[in-house]
Design a protein around this nucleic acid. Sequence first.
DNA 1: GCAAAAGTGTTAGTCATACACCCATGT
DNA 2: ACATGGGTGTATGACTAACACTTTTGC
Lengths: 249, 249
Amino acid sequence: MNFSSILAQNLNQQLKLPAKKNILKEFFHAAFSVDNVVFGFDEEDLKVLLIYRGAEPFKGNWALPGDLVHLDEDLDLAAKRVLYDLTGLDNIFMQQFHTFGKVKRHPFGRVITVAYYALIKVEDYNINAASWAKEARWFSVNELPNLPFDHKEVIEYAKQNFMEKARRQPIGFELLPQSFTLTQIQHLYEAILESKFDTRNFRKKILSMNLLIDTKKTEKGKANRPAALYKFDLKKFEKLQKSGFSFDL
Amino acid sequence: MNFSSILAQNLNQQLKLPAKKNILKEFFHAAFSVDNVVFGFDEEDLKVLLIYRGAEPFKGNWALPGDLVHLDEDLDLAAKRVLYDLTGLDNIFMQQFHTFGKVKRHPFGRVITVAYYALIKVEDYNINAASWAKEARWFSVNELPNLPFDHKEVIEYAKQNFMEKARRQPIGFELLPQSFTLTQIQHLYEAILESKFDTRNFRKKILSMNLLIDTKKTEKGKANRPAALYKFDLKKFEKLQKSGFSFDL
DNA sequence: GCAAAAGTGTTAGTCATACACCCATGT
DNA sequence: ACATGGGTGTATGACTAACACTTTTGC
């Protein structure tokens, strides 16, 4: 006996009204999916991870890594599971940000999709397309291919949401390698917030958070003065977060 | 022929894979609902509107006004429709804030719920419980009855979300009557943000937004100095919002 | 005239902004 | 030696936070 028939039985046991059949017929024929917007950064541009679809609908299109959610699967876990199935990315924290629910957004029937985003350090993970994803690749957020469903809107929404968070919390560090230069952070924030900052003021502000640890190491191999490498003090940040904490760029 | 069978037929036409039956069986047996957290304010306390359920499940309990969404109904419109059906509140702007999707949150089967909140001026609307809602009443957010489903969590989440927005945008004015005193705003913000403000500094800040219009009228009938009445300059606020705008309490 | 809430200014400290040059390295 | 990006300090104005008394009304 599968899960949906257990559910139906459950419903029959509980509902002693004549309405019971109607409720089953009228409402319990929808599905829902999760879609994941994974952001990365590569010194230049903010990137989004897309997969090449090897299954209907929209087979042969680049799209967000997303899929239908099983009936016996918690929503938040489904987001992680789907991302892992399609890209091999494991144990990524996914932040839910919006649910898209237009009637005709999915050609197979009524499917609403719950959208999540994540930030990853590109160098830390190997991406391996699997399951029905034929390929997975980073695309610059500003140079996206045509996307199926409402995925363009989803990415736009994710970007907006991420910008707002990043402006108030030093959240962008999750996109940088373990150790990084101040110039890298500045470029990252300039990419996220789509603006330019004064170098001196930016450095003062970033350092005044007291959340960066000087690794005492320097970058090598460049034809210029080597930059100091810092790392992010995650533990301190988590402590501060609990006690309420603010930060504005 | 009803909507779900049209969908199923549609699916059969498009999917020429042997997987088609599995997809229908495996996934298209969920439902989804909307739940609305309507905030109000009454000089003292932040309030939430609850209905008394006259239908299963959880018949005889106070709960958020929420219901299942029809298969042929846009999500955002469903939120408005459900609120109207249950409480008579018409044409209220509902802001989506989170989707709750634990497997066992609904006793009838797999139902995820998309939660919305709204802010209303209590004096401007008549609330009339209708449909399967037997009654509708304001409850102080800090004195809620026991709630079914995950509605306690939903309200907590809404409150948090609303607090964050209110801290950065003069959004709370939507809870006050058309004209109001500075003291009322202060009490409102103190209720929302659960803190106390210095009267002089608060007034300076609120007035420095230049979004209040002095009506040149005063409160009457109180045994103390009458307070000046202001109204909110919505048009100016909307203009400012477009050009990016910030405000912090 | 008294109770009750409305209303009002100043000061000190902190923070944001604007701005231009020298430094360390590789080639 | 030169090209390249890294790194630094100061002055000005704006904003924040702390604080106590007078005003106006109803009774």
